[in-house]
Design a binder for these strands. Structure first.
Lengths: 213, 213
DNA sequence: TGTACATCAGTGAACGCGCGTTCACTGATGTAC
DNA sequence: TGTACATCAGTGAACGCGCGTTCACTGATGTAC
């Protein structure tokens, strides 16, 4: 009964790209991976599964990615970019002070993590890949990290005293607190307070308390 | 070069248990799993690998565990118990106030997570298992959770005002902060401050600031 | 305008791997008589 | 004290699965003449 999870429906028949447009497949592959992550756990993602979702034979992937690892690395990269992008977008809408901006950014962070759990989990599952393709990890995290540290720096510039010795520590505290709370929610999704709204509320409350105005 | 990770050495020849002592194998299996987790990532743990480490044929495992899932669940269970146990042990040594006890407990938590990263990661990797064998998850986390919430309750009883609305939230904040910081360290192990001592320092500092005396 | 041809996008079959699981079995060891 | 036998601890071979990867290939399409 528990195992009667619906198998992925077969991809619709696909017509091949026109002559100089083979590059489109690359985008289709990434898009298919994202689609899979919307309904399956990150651990199920595989080259063959992605090829199936696109509606293409497995070897076709090799025209666009060196190997499975490179493909996965690219997907991770894109997820980090999405997360950073959504945080920046949220910040851009916010004209209030630094703390308000930080809260808006972190609300976007929480929503990404809670609404696309598999994508979010992939961000921290890169151990097996790390060895080569993701040497530039710091660069990947950068967009998300920067969103937070910029706001905190602005917060300090507004004349507030930080709850930590420096901006780096305050940034780590902010991200650690949010990531930790999210991980607990993901581990026990049905507990009270572990839905998106509850986690978002928790994180925003904590930001208020940590950076008490 | 990167892939030249030493393969696990073959297990020494094993002599079978005596007549009524077949049950010993069960313990050997769990012990072997723990040994594997000392050097391999949690994702590599498998029934066959464990059997190999014990020095026994794969089917032998089935005399003691219903299937691979039940085996994995038992391992997770044991890891939670270890973590809770080490926290309690640390607390027992501490005769000072509630905050000092909490710090000692969380220091034990951080050390477990940093020194046995694969075991720690297994604690939060139970998604695939969760469906049945780990319905009692709250019960598993309990020992670790209880350590923290008991100390915080004592802290409040000492007359201090909590930094959150209630004990539950303060417990979540404490665990989320620590877990999040640890996860960041695990994701980028070679960054400055991400060694055991750095993470422990961070967590203890934050506890001081969160529960500022 | 028609045709030969190079190129491009993608295929199908096969490989070896490690996995979980099943099955019929083996051989040592303790026990009953 | 000796022997037949049941039981127990564990085995070996085989299964199907999905995976990543390789290889030689096919067939449509645009281009050159």
């Amino acid at each position: 009964m528990t195992d009667m999870i619906s198998p992925r429906p077969a991809a619709p028949p696909r017509q091949r790209n026109r002559r100089g447009e083979g590059g489109r497949l690359r985008d289709e592959i990434i898009a298919a991976a994202m689609r899979i992550l919307d309904t399956a756990p990150a651990s199920e993602l595989s080259l063959r599964m992605i090829a199936r979702e696109v509606g293409v034979a497995a070897p076709s992937v090799y025209s666009h990615f060196k190997d499975a690892r490179a493909l996965m690395a690219e997907i991770v990269r894109d997820c980090w970019a999405q997360l950073g992008g959504e945080m920046s977008e949220a910040a851009a809408q916010c004209t209030a002070g630094a703390l308000a901006t930080l809260k808006v950014q972190m609300a976007a962070y929480v929503r990404y993590a809670m609404e696309r759990p598999s994508r979010y989990q992939l961000l921290f599952a890169l151990q097996p890949l790390e060895t080569e393709a993701l040497r530039d990890l710091p660069g990947l995290i950068q967009p998300a990290y920067r969103n937070v540290s910029d706001s905190i720096e602005r917060f300090a510039a507004e004349g507030h005293v930080l709850p930590t010795v420096d901006v780096v520590d305050a940034t780590l505290l902010t991200l650690a607190m949010a990531h930790g709370r999210i991980a607990l929610a993901h581990t026990a999704p049905h507990r009270a307070g572990n839905a998106t709204a509850g986690v978002e509320q928790f994180v925003l409350d904590m930001l208020d308390r940590i950076f008490r105005v």
